[in-house]
Design a protein around this nucleic acid. Structure first.
Lengths: 346, 346
DNA sequence: ATTGGCAGTCAAGACGGGCGAGTGCTAAAG
DNA sequence: CTTTAGCACTCGCCCGTCTTGACTGCCAAT
């Protein structure tokens, strides 16, 4: 069985390989680490690890490289997620403290995370379904056009144009607005959508069509696909680490731009309580575990943020298998915490 | 001097090189095109072109490749910008027709352009300075926080949070809102900013601080740096064409994410009436012409859009020197026109 | 369980010859 | 003056060979 020292060997293999990007051999291990045993002994341990499929030799006679399974073991049991340095914490403070609105907060967050990790950073927009209606606004844009604006307590603003038949009566619009806010204010979005179904009935029959139109626009806004969106930064980092990918990074970049794939992955990582669960709620999905998403050669680290339990959205980083898990997990964790605090203040 | 046929030779060199990505020699030219002369004659022409620095031979004995100057000549005098095929026009119709709001229009536009050209596509947000105030909204978010929302006639929405001292009086807020809309509605943004300076004076002295706070927030929104923003798509295409870059594409990707560099370039292309002016208002900036932006190995094609004269913003594509200028310029032109029409309808 | 030694394996890099595409030049022809 | 054919020359590229060096696996000894 894989003994204690064997696991230590696995740890240094992962660490050295990540640092040097070269397969690590038994000799270099005894040189760089004080195991107090000879290279031959390390070789025996490595043979064990290879049997367990935690490492492989790319060529018959070269050093060893961690497998997906090896990285998984490292992440689950071997990585020490050090807290960030004070300097790093201060950087977070300075960088995020000056934000003015939600868009700005998220944009800064994602850039920060990308800079801390030197990887592609991703931040999911706060899930609307978790937020509440703060305010509804109806703005006449022209004689037959209204812009409906939905503002949530997470600071998100959704706007949409509605064409209404006939002329718009401004005082009537004001009344609809007032009643909408009375009816929906403070409701969770799911409840708000429900309330909208019967909303038009409180108006005079003759007004129904136009009110129904507005209500359905709002319903759409609540359920809009845009409720799931990602901001990202640092795609250039993918190119920097290109040598770590056997094939091209083209499909990876496509998936990132497409978003939908990553959103599914995020969803799965949020849902799955067991697989990928890891240190202090930072979860990892490694290599082949992402195969169904066409991302079999990358790793994704995510954490929930917002609402204390982190259920409002997820953020994380994406990069090659060969990444600095310890550091990156620490960064993801710290940024998620900070963002949670920032959103909680409002 | 470079005769008529020499220029024809330059044209086919550019075309063949773009298509095959291989230096093109005299023999392959006579094979693939019916010049009615022998290879030796073509060689003489090529010697001329080389003297004019329109083409170079990468190695002593290999075919020729266009220089920056050669591409420039091609774009200015030789490229025939064919109208798009009906199928392509229909694709534009279908793709952009279903848009719901400005964000959506721009997002669709940029993706469309990227798909038509197989390059990185860029669309600048409509310049606020060209738009007018449609509506101002003040929404109480908490007891001491107000969200100010600025809506322009180009459909753009800017929101911002304002902390105000003390409790917020809702009826007072309603009054401020009403007066703001009276004072600013319909004004161009520059005028609106001016009007905001004296706006607080129409209120009771005791109210000045809070009104001034709101007014300055709005002023910021008008002048916010976010008025210049780019949406982009197709960064994956850069990777696909990576072989066309002598160095790494890393700095290029960085510049794209940074935006500020590209915005400067866009600004210059909008301003400069001579340099880079080209067919039907699609402008090109080629290779070393972008050197000051650190983009000496790429070409950018842009066109203005909006307000008939195309002064509301710019859109375009970015790619390697070795790109299909004819097709891409046609696509940029068509999309810019379509977008102008779309915005004009509102 | 650990160690030293030894033979075997294989990727990577250096060397070198042959191939072929393409050029420039020159002299002759239109 | 332009065009053409012919010819010698230049290099980049491909391919096979050889050497080197870093590891491993195994075995016998401790």
């Amino acid at each position: 069985m894989v003994s204690g020292r064997s696991l230590d060997v696995l740890r240094v293999i992962v660490q050295d390989y990540v640092a040097s990007r070269e397969p690590v051999g038994s000799k270099s291990i005894v040189e760089r680490h004080s195991f107090g045993v000879s290279a031959a002994t390390i070789r025996n341990d490595m043979a064990l690890l290879e049997e367990e499929e935690l490492i492989v030799a790319p060529h018959t006679s070269s050093g060893r490289v961690p497998t997906d399974k090896g990285y998984r073991m490292f992440v689950d049991h071997l990585a020490d997620v050090r807290p960030l340095t004070p300097a790093q914490r201060q950087a977070i403070d300075q960088f995020l403290g000056a934000s003015v609105d939600l868009d700005d907060v998220l944009a800064r967050t994602v850039r920060l995370l990308s800079q801390l990790t030197h990887q592609v950073a991703l931040v999911q927009y706060p899930l609307l379904s978790k937020s509440r209606v703060r305010h509804v606004e109806l703005v006449p844009m022209s004689t037959s056009r209204v812009m409906s604006v939905l503002i949530t307590d997470t600071g998100r603003v959704e706007q949409r144009l509605v064409d209404v038949p006939g002329q718009i009566d401004e005082t009537f619009l004001a009344e609809v607005r007032a009643r909408l806010n009375t009816a929906l204010g403070g409701l969770g979005l799911a409840d708000a959508a429900e309330a909208l179904v019967t909303f038009p009935t409180q108006f005079d029959q003759s007004r129904h069509p136009i009110v129904a139109l507005l209500a359905s626009s709002l319903t759409e806004q609540i359920g809009a696909n845009r409720q799931d969106r990602l901001v990202m930064a640092g795609t250039a980092n993918l190119v920097r680490t290109e040598e770590d990918f056997s094939g091209s990074i083209f499909p990876v970049l496509e998936a990132i731009e497409e978003q939908v794939t990553l959103l599914r992955l995020f969803g799965e990582m949020a849902a799955d309580q067991n697989v990928g669960l890891s240190y202090d709620n930072v979860r990892a999905s490694i290599g082949r575990e992402n195969a169904e998403f066409g991302l079999g050669e990358i790793s994704v680290l995510t954490s929930g943020y917002g609402a204390q339990d982190g259920s409002v959205g997820r953020l994380g980083v994406l990069g090659p298998l060969r990444m600095d898990y310890s550091n990156n997990m620490a960064a993801v964790r710290a940024v998620a915490r900070y963002l949670t605090g920032l959103l909680g203040e409002d």
